[in-house]
Amino acid sequence: MAAVLEVKNLTKKFKDFAINDISFTLEKGYIMGFIGPNGAGKSTTIKLIMNLLKKDDGEIKIFGLDNVEYEKEVKNRIGFVFDENYFYEELTVMEMKRVIAPLYKNWNDRVFNKYLKEFSLPAKAKIKELSKGMKMKFSIAVALSHEAELLIMDEPTSGLDPIIRSELLDILTFLIQDENKSVFFSTHITSDLDKIADYITFINNGSIVFSCAKDDILENHGLVKGPKEILDADLRKYFIGLKETQFGFEGLTENRQQVKRILRDRAIIDRPSLDDIMLYYAKEVQHV
């Protein structure tokens, strides 16, 4: 299958933070959730993909093309939605569109107007007069009006109310029915991804913890709850992180079947949420 986004051994060093040799691949027709705590390196990675930051080392290929060498060509085929508004606040919705539209080879006014109507966006309103949710919808309308094959979204749901978040997820679900479109979606609100993501890439402290199919992750990981006396040194090896109380423990394992075989019915093993997974991995790194 064709890779839409391929990041290989990407490295970028700052004074007090670094993206360390990260790699992952997004294939055509899928939604990849890019999760991690605040400050883990999500936005930095997206800025590197967009060539807003210069990489120190590694390779970024979009549609099989180098993201710097073929920057203009690649960006013609990308739609982007960022966590805050980067449009000129002094311009109206229509004026901003007038500036942006001719820059894209495949801009489609009909589609844009359809989204304006669908999102109830006032064409003559200045962008600064729009609510945060409306600004985000305007970003989406722009991102979807030029036949983008890859949508790159950096925390698009942060600060939005649940209704608009749900609307956004519905749009993405609808969009992905077209097999030629792919979405790379960074968020720290993992519940957004439970419904829509096919793949999850988890970044923590500038390094990739895992990048796999969401179903495999949820299938292989287990949230184990049991009494303290069964928690011996051998069993501890199976846990990514543990919370211990006076009476019992709760821990995350990435080897659910094996732990199930060892413990049988001496403990309860639940399916973890992405939030549980992120929490335990992040804590584990902090302990080390």
């Binding site: 967009m50 807003l52 980067y86 002094e90 820059l103």
Partner: peptide, 18 residues
């Protein structure tokens, strides 16, 4: 000044522009 206020470099450099 308006470019800076609107953080326009992020927008402009995300568009298909050299």
């Amino acid at each position: 000044a308006y470019d800076e206020k609107n953080k326009a470099d992020i927008l402009l450099n995300s568009l298909p522009l050299n």
